[in-house]
Simulated scan of single mutants.
Amino acid sequence: MITSDQIRAARALIRWSAEDLAARSGVGLSTIRRMETAEGIPSASGKNLAAVQKALEAAGVLFIQENGEGPGVRLRKNLTLDMFAGSGNAAPEFQRITARDDGLVIVTNPPYPSRKK
């Protein structure tokens, strides 16, 4: 099972808002917020926890289980994630997040790739 700390960290790692996670997982926003404020493993239904985990994993997050140092998250190696991100009333902007083999995470704002006709 994933913890509330892992959910918050995963969302921050891929720069998703709680609203983004709710939309991508199909779980209600108020449920996401309750999950993230819980201590340890959220008391949400197994179905909702699985949906949140699946959505975050599809975006490239790996969940690291307790290994003596505590549970954690990281991005898959050699992963590039293209997305739109914005906050508040600001217009979303295109971002590319790349996790390299050496563990470095790079966030850039390249021009949005156009579709070839």
Rank of each mutant, 00 (worst) to 15 (best):
E19F: 11
S45G: 12
K47I: 11
L49A: 01
A99M: 03
P111G: 01
I64F: 00
E69W: 13
G40R: 10
T3L: 07
N78D: 12
K77H: 09
V52W: 04
I14S: 01
E93G: 00
I32S: 02
P110W: 08
G46A: 04
S17Y: 04
E39T: 15
P111W: 09
A38L: 02
L49G: 03
D5K: 12
R100I: 02
N78Q: 12
L62Q: 14
L56D: 12
E93S: 02
R115K: 13
K54G: 14
N48K: 09
I7Q: 06
V61M: 11
N78S: 08
D82I: 01
L49V: 04
R115A: 15
Q65E: 13
V107E: 08
D101E: 07
Y112C: 15
E19A: 10
K54Y: 14
G60Y: 07
S114M: 14
T37K: 14
V27N: 07
Y112N: 12
A12I: 01
R96A: 05
R11V: 05
P113H: 12
R33W: 01
L81W: 04
L104G: 00
N109T: 15
L75G: 05
R33L: 05
T98S: 10
A22I: 05
T108E: 15
A59M: 02
P42Q: 08
D102S: 06
A85Y: 15
Q53I: 03
E39V: 13
G60K: 03
V107D: 06
A90W: 09
D20M: 08
R96H: 05
A18Y: 04
A85P: 01
M1E: 07
V73K: 01
S114D: 10
D20W: 00
E36A: 11
S114K: 12
G46C: 04
S43W: 07
G86Y: 00
D82L: 06
A12C: 00
